[in-house]
Write a protein that binds this DNA or RNA. Structure first.
Lengths: 337, 337
DNA sequence: GCTTCCAGTGGGAGCGCTCCCAGCTCAGAT
DNA sequence: ATCTGAGCTGGGAGCGCTCCCACTGGAAGC
C-alpha cells in the first residue's frame, strides 16, 4: 500500500474479457466447478495471473449469503478475563479447525456494554456464518441473544440456566471429584475449596465435584470460598481460608491461577506444601508445571475444546446437526500433593 | 436458530415499503444522514422496529467498499507461540480501540503454510480494511506480502530487514540496557544473557541493549544463549549457561517466561536467587509477579501497544498518515535482584 | 437417418445496500 | 408576483460476485 489511491482491483469481468470468455466461465474456473473446457480454463488461469486477480470476498459473500467467518465470543464484565491463558489455548484449537474449513476467525471480547451490543447485532445480522460463545454467566444477556440468533451458535461450556442445542463442555464435576478424592486418598481430612465464580456453571460444577467427593468419603465439605479465577483472588481466598480454618490440610482450587495464588500465600505464611497443606489446581496450564512446587492439577483438553467447538460449528453451518460433546478430564499428579 | 429454514431477513426495501418511503430515505435514516423529515424518520424507525430489521453488513460492505473489520496477524512457525500471554494483552488493547471505531477484529494465527496463504490473500483481496502484523521473523514471507498489500498495514515491532511506514514498537534496547545496568549497579560482574529468538528484531534488540550496557560498564558480555521465549527454553538455556560459566552471578533473560525457566533451573541446582545469581526478566507479565522470588523485570506497556497499533490502523484506514510510535519501557524492581 | 443427451457456454437476474442526481416543494428575498 | 436556494425525496445505477437457465453442437443410441 503506497498511500496513493491504489489502482482499482481487477474484476472478474475484466478477467473474463481478457481470457475471451464469459464471466460465467471465469467464475467456474475460480470455483473449480465443472463444465469448462481445458483450453478456456487455461486461458482464464493465465488472465488471472497476468492481471493479478484476487476475488473480492465481500461480493462473493453477498452472492452466496455466506460471510466466510466464524466468531468466537468471550463474555465477561471486564476484558481482563481474557488474560487467562486458557482462552489462548482455545483459540489455537479453534483457529486450526477454522483454517481447514477456510473460515476466518472473528474474536469478540464482549466485555463492555457496547461490545455486547455488537455481538447481538452480529448474531441478528448474519455478520458471521456461526458463533462460538464462551464464559457466560448467570443471566448473561448473550444467552438470550443466542437463543434467537439467525445463525448457528455453539456454546463452550454449558450456560447456567439452560441446555443449549450445541455445546462442548468439559467434565468439570468429574475432574473436581477426582482431584478431591486424590486429596482424601493422601490422608487429608480438612479439605477446603477455593471456588471459581459461582455465577458460572464451571465454577459451580467444580464446587459440586469437590463436595460430592468429600461427602462420599464421609468428610465435611467447607463452604465455598469464592475467587474469580485470577491469581490474586486465589491468594486472597487462601488468606481468608487460613483465618477461618487454620487447621486445614488441603486445598482444592478451581483453577491453576488461583492455586498458584494459594501457593504464594502458603509460602508467605510459612506453610510447607505439601507437608502442611496439599494443593490441587484445575486446567493444567503452564503455570501448573512451573509453579513451586509443581502443581497436581486436573488436566482438561483445552486446545481440543477449541477444536471441537469449531468442528461442531462448521458442521452446524453446513446444515447438519452435530451432537453435543463432553470432554474428559484427567488428574495429573505432581509434587504439590 | 431453530434449524428450520430461517425466514428471510427483512431488507431495506421492505422497511421502506412499510414506512411508505423510498429506499433512499430509509437508508438515510439508518445512517443518521441529514435530509430526512422528522415524520418520515419516525415512520422508518417504527418500521424497523416492527420488522426487526437489521442491516446486512455484507451488502453494506460491498456498496461502501469497506469491510468493517481489521485483522491482527500473528506470524510464527507454530501456533504455540500464541500461548504467550503477551498476545492476549495486545488483543485486549487492540480490541477496545477497534470496538470504539466499530471495527471487528479478525485474528489470524499465520502458523501453517495454509494460514500464511490466507493472510496473503486477505492482504491482496481487501478482505479487511487494514491489518496489524506481529511477530515477524527474518525473511518472513508476510513482510513481502505486506509490502504490496492493497490495504494499510501496521507493524507491531519493527521487522528485521526494513523499516515500515507504520509501526508501533517498544524500546527494547533501552529496556534491556536498563535491566543490565541495574544488575551491574547491584555489583554483579559476570552477567549472562538468555536471549529470545535472534531471528526477531525484539530478540536482537534486547541482546544489543544487554551488550551495550556491559561494554559501557567495562565488563565482558557473554555470547548470546538463545531461547525461544518459552519457559522450558529458559530453563534449558540456564542449564547450558551454568555448564559453560559456572561462576556467573546474574542473568538477564529476554522475557519473563524464560526468566521463570531460569529460576526453576537455579532452584533445582541449589542456587539462591538473588544471593548467588540475580535474575531480570522482560515483559512484566503475571508470571513475573507470582514467580518465586518475584521477578525484577522490564515493564512494557503491552495493552497500550495493542491499543496504539489499532489506533494507528484506524487513522491509516481513514486516509491519514499516522506517525510511527516507540513506547517506553521501565524497570520494575522486585526481589530477584 | 433421426432423436436423445449432455458437456460447454454466455446472458441476465439477482444478493442488499449506498450514493449520485434530477426533480420537487416551499420559505424568504427581490 | 417572480426568483433563488435550501431541504426533501425517490429513481436508478452501481458494488463484484454466483447461479439459474436457455442455448449450442457433437457424440452416443436406436
Amino acid at each position: 500500500m503506497t498511500g496513493a489511491a491504489p489502482r482499482r482491483q481487477p474484476t472478474l469481468d475484466e478477467v473474463a474479457a481478457r481470457a475471451g470468455v464469459s464471466r460465467s466461465v471465469a467464475s467456474r474456473v475460480l470455483n473449480k466447478a465443472p463444465h469448462v473446457s481445458p483450453s478456456k480454463r487455461e486461458a482464464v488461469e493465465r488472465a488471472v495471473r497476468q492481471l493479478g486477480y484476487v476475488a473480492n470476498p465481500t461480493a462473493r459473500a453477498l452472492a452466496t449469503r455466506q460471510t466466510g467467518a466464524a466468531a468466537l465470543v468471550i463474555s465477561g464484565e471486564d476484558p481482563s478475563i481474557f488474560a487467562d491463558p486458557f482462552f489462548a489455548q482455545v483459540i489455537v484449537g479453534a483457529s486450526q479447525t477454522l483454517e481447514e474449513a477456510d473460515l476466518h476467525l472473528m474474536l469478540c471480547l464482549a466485555a463492555s456494554e457496547r461490545g455486547r451490543k455488537r455481538v447481538e447485532e452480529l448474531l441478528r445480522s448474519r455478520g458471521a456464518d456461526g458463533v462460538m460463545l464462551m464464559a457466560l454467566r448467570d443471566g448473561d444477556p448473550l444467552a438470550a441473544a443466542a437463543e434467537e440468533a439467525e445463525i448457528p451458535v455453539v456454546f463452550g461450556g454449558r450456560p447456567v440456566d439452560s441446555v443449549p442445542r450445541w455445546y462442548v463442555d468439559v467434565d468439570n464435576v468429574g475432574g473436581a471429584r477426582a482431584a478431591t478424592e486424590h486429596l482424601v486418598s493422601r490422608g487429608r481430612t480438612r479439605v477446603a475449596a477455593i471456588c471459581g465464580r459461582l455465577d458460572t456453571e464451571a465454577g459451580r460444577a467444580r464446587y459440586r465435584g469437590y463436595r460430592d467427593a468429600l461427602l462420599a468419603a464421609g468428610l465435611d465439605p467447607l463452604p465455598p470460598r469464592e475467587g474469580d479465577f485470577t491469581e490474586p483472588s486465589g491468594a486472597a481466598a487462601m488468606e481468608a481460608l487460613l483465618a477461618d480454618t487454620p487447621d486445614l490440610d488441603a486445598v482444592f482450587a478451581a483453577n491453576d491461577n488461583m492455586a498458584a495464588g494459594a501457593l504464594r500465600t502458603l509460602r508467605a505464611t510459612g506453610r510447607a506444601v505439601p507437608a502442611d497443606v496439599a494443593v490441587v489446581g484445575f486446567d493444567d496450564l503452564t503455570v501448573a508445571r512451573v509453579a513451586d512446587p509443581p502443581l497436581t492439577t486436573v488436566h482438561q483438553p483445552i486446545t481440543a475444546l477449541g477444536r471441537e467447538m469449531a468442528r461442531m460449528l462448521v458442521t452446524a453451518v453446513n446444515g447438519h446437526d452435530p451432537t453435543p460433546l463432553i470432554l474428559p478430564t484427567r488428574l495429573v499428579t505432581r509434587s504439590s500433593t
